[in-house]
């Protein structure tokens, strides 16, 4: 019976959590994932150790994937998209790109986000200089076990992490804080210092937003135990020095003087953009997008995990920048809404 089935779109932490929740309650879930594997950004982008558990992404998210894939209550369609959604709450019919149709009583959009593409900030050298990388690439470097400059493989003496790349920037229409990058950067800085003690790490910031319990666990710890240096400066540009190193230019707000400091590697702490497919998702599922381009959240107090369409729910970073842990919690919240609909 279609009413006892939920269609979950997206196999990242939020979608996996929603599927696990529905399955645990003995109901059916159909999980559609556009990529050829489950796990979402932490797996697809090769994250290293997660905040705040410190567990490797492939282990932690891997457990979620195994749980869902081994559940008899969950049907998984990988390398598929939903191309059409007909019907109403309680009786939806979705058409997948492989031509199959799925009948479901409700839909959960766990469609996530897209990493900001640093090419859109050309003045910071990404795409121009091989030693300018993003936090996702640094995650992969940590995962590979060796910190080295991509240009020639040398161990960097000095690494600069630039915060707010693709966040809090009206110039490029990103008027939001991506929420996790400060903490992720502090975490990565500690990883770098641990793996390569001779490497000095400098974090260039406007504000440090290691919210909640991440304050001492990441910000303070990186500074106090790992000697990471925090410099208050918004970088103007990254250029090349004649010796092949990178020059980070800007104004040190606290010294009130211009800086041109040599670095071996520059890391962009890239923000979270709305999923690049959101216009298409909005059309297909008939849900509204809020002004930044994320899925519009319904009135939250009594319509938790709701969207602008009845019977269609959402969770995680589809709503806006979100941490992995909170995405997982929101997936459970969406599952509860879906289960309540099935019961009613």
């Amino acid at each position: 019976m279609s009413k006892d089935t939920v269609l979950i779109v997206g196999g990242g932490p939020a979608g996996l959590s929603a599927a696990a929740g529905v399955a645990a309650a003995g109901k059916k879930a159909v999980l559609v994932e556009k990529e050829d594997r489950l796990g979402g950004a932490p797996i697809l982008s090769g994250y290293a150790k997660l905040v705040p558990s410190g567990e490797w992404a492939k282990d932690a998210i891997g457990r979620m994937v195994d749980g869902v894939e081994s559940s008899s209550n969950v049907t998984v369609h990988k390398s598929n998209k939903v191309t059409k959604l007909d019907g109403d709450a309680g009786n939806f019919t979705a058409t997948l790109s492989n031509g199959e149709t799925v009948n479901a009583g409700s839909v959960v959009l766990a469609t996530g986000f897209t990493h900001f593409d640093s090419i859109n900030k050309p003045e910071w050298g990404f795409g121009t200089f091989p030693d300018v990388i993003t936090t996702t690439q640094l995650e992969q470097m940590v995962g590979s076990g060796k910190i080295a400059c991509p240009s020639d493989g040398r161990v960097p003496e000095r690494v600069a992490i630039l915060l707010c790349v693709g966040s809090r920037d009206r110039q490029i229409g990103r008027e939001w804080c991506s929420k996790v990058c400060c903490t992720v950067s502090a975490n990565l800085a500690m990883e770098v210092r641990e793996m390569s003690p001779e490497t000095q790490v400098f974090i260039y910031y406007m504000d440090i937003r290691t919210f909640g319990l991440y304050e001492d666990k990441y910000y303070w710890k990186s500074q106090e135990e790992f000697k990471v240096k925090y410099v208050k400066a918004r970088i103007a540009e990254v250029t090349a020095a004649s010796d092949g190193r990178l020059l980070v230019k800007g104004e040190d707000t606290l010294v009130k003087r211009p800086i041109v400091i040599p670095f071996d590697m520059v890391v962009h702490a890239v923000g979270m953009d709305p999923n690049e497919d959101n216009p298409e998702i909005s059309n297909t599922f008939g849900v509204g997008l809020e002004k930044h381009g994320y899925i519009e959240r319904a009135e939250h107090y009594t319509n938790t995990a709701g969207t602008t369409r009845k019977g269609v729910y959402s969770c995680g970073s589809a709503y806006g920048p979100e941490s992995i842990d909170d995405s997982i919690s929101q997936g459970s919240a969406a599952a509860l809404r879906v289960l309540a609909d099935m019961a009613g």
Binding site: Q200, F202, W220, Q223, K227, P258, I259, V260, I261, P262
Partner: peptide, 25 residues
């Protein structure tokens, strides 16, 4: 007035003098 480099060893040097151990915090 541009700052063109940091002296990476200076902080460690000052921290060895009694009283300045916590300057990095």
């Amino acid at each position: 007035r541009t700052l063109t480099d940091y002296d990476d060893s200076f902080e460690a040097k000052i921290q060895k003098i009694a009283g300045a151990e916590n300057v990095h915090r």
